[in-house]
């Protein structure tokens, strides 16, 4: 794709794309945190961050609250515990951040907007998504704190376990579309199926429908969100692996957490919900609308994650593994089998 570019242009392109992606991550985190606060507040009969009246408040409806928070985090003192392993402690947030960053680079935001189109796209995404766990373990270990260590070990077990059902349910998609290329997957979801429904993988057959939910649940688990937030279980482990972090380093964890949400929801959108395709084929379907549909779908999924978080209690660590290995994995395997039969005989 970039063979004809000279090295300087290549560098500029890299920097530009990097800045854009970083901007996207930052904006995503700001917006998602704001949404999380507001939605949780509304679900709990509260108003959430508000700003009104005289003086400098957090803007109309508290819109500037997260901006103010970010500012505060940047300006905060950077504390590294004396007992911590300094080098690892410093590097851990960046590992997590890089994991999220290079994953977001491969997401197709619309038909034309994609930083890098790899023909092994979905495989690449699944692979780099699990890079973050290295950072979590590093953070937990380097903090030299028992709570952090517990959080790190829990999250290692959890993320590795949930990778498997997630990958298996993505295989369903690959089986149905016979491509690993993200754009290819999206293009194959064009048109209408069952008369009215859009030809998205999720509606393709019952197995794919189930696969979407398996993937989404695994995704929620991979991003360490309630009900699977045991690595940072507040009431048990104080804050889990990032107990000792503060200021900007903590902000990087935060940024990556929300970026990970975005990525997981992005993959779900691409793989199951037709990516940038319009739900009604031919309606608002061209050019920039793709961007709209992609973001719309992703944000809806993020909303569902937030909704989960403020409704459910938390699972225990062994139950969490039980869900992965006893429920999701068998179902995902069955699904693959079922989809195979479906495409042989029906589809």
């Amino acid at each position: 794709m970039f063979e004809n570019l000279t090295s300087l242009e290549w560098l500029l392109w890299l920097i530009l794309a990097g800045l854009l992606l970083f901007g996207l991550m930052a904006v995503n985190a700001l917006a998602a945190v704001y949404a999380e606060r507001k939605l949780s507040a509304f679900m709990q009969d509260r108003l959430g961050p508000m700003g009104q009246g005289a003086g400098f408040h957090a803007g109309k409806w508290g819109m500037l609250q997260t901006v103010a928070d970010a500012l505060k985090l940047i300006l905060k003192e950077d504390i590294i515990p004396r007992a911590a392993d300094r080098r690892l402690f410093i590097i851990a947030p960046y590992i997590i951040f890089i994991g999220a960053f290079i994953a977001i680079a491969a997401l197709p935001f619309s038909e034309y907007i994609q930083v890098i189109d790899i023909n092994l796209g979905i495989f690449y995404l699944l692979a780099v998504c699990s890079l973050g766990v290295v950072g979590l373990i590093t953070a937990g270990w380097a903090s030299d704190n028992k709570w952090s260590l517990y959080g790190a070990l829990r999250s290692a077990a959890q993320i590795v376990s949930y990778e498997i059902p997630a990958a298996l349910s993505i295989i369903v998609v690959v089986m149905l579309t016979s491509t690993l290329d993200l754009q290819g997957i999206i293009r194959s979801q064009e048109g209408v199926i069952w008369g009215i429904l859009p030809n998205w993988i999720i509606f393709n057959n019952p197995f794919a429908f189930l696969a979407f939910f398996i993937y989404f649940i695994s995704g929620v688990a991979e991003t360490n969100r309630t009900p699977f937030d045991i690595p940072e279980a507040e009431s048990e482990l104080v804050a889990g692996f990032h107990t000792e972090y503060s200021g900007m380093r903590w902000a990087f964890f935060f940024l990556s957490e929300y970026a990970n949400m975005f990525i997981v929801c992005g993959i779900a959108t691409v793989a199951f919900l037709g990516g940038w395709q319009s739900p009604v084929p031919g309606f608002m379907d061209s050019g920039a609308w793709g961007l709209f549909w992609f973001f719309g779908k992703v944000l809806f999924l993020i909303f569902v994650m937030i909704w989960f978080r403020w409704t459910f209690p938390r699972l225990r660590v062994d139950q969490l593994m039980g869900v992965a290995w006893k429920v999701l994995l068998p179902l995902a395997l069955l699904n693959i089998f079922g989809v195979g039969l479906w495409s042989l005989y029906i589809g």
Binding site: L39, F42, M43, Q44, D45, W307, F308, W310, T311, F312
Partner: peptide
């Protein structure tokens, strides 16, 4: 449970 929170939202 989700219904309850959605109702409040």
């Amino acid at each position: 449970g989700l219904g309850v929170t959605l109702k409040h939202l």
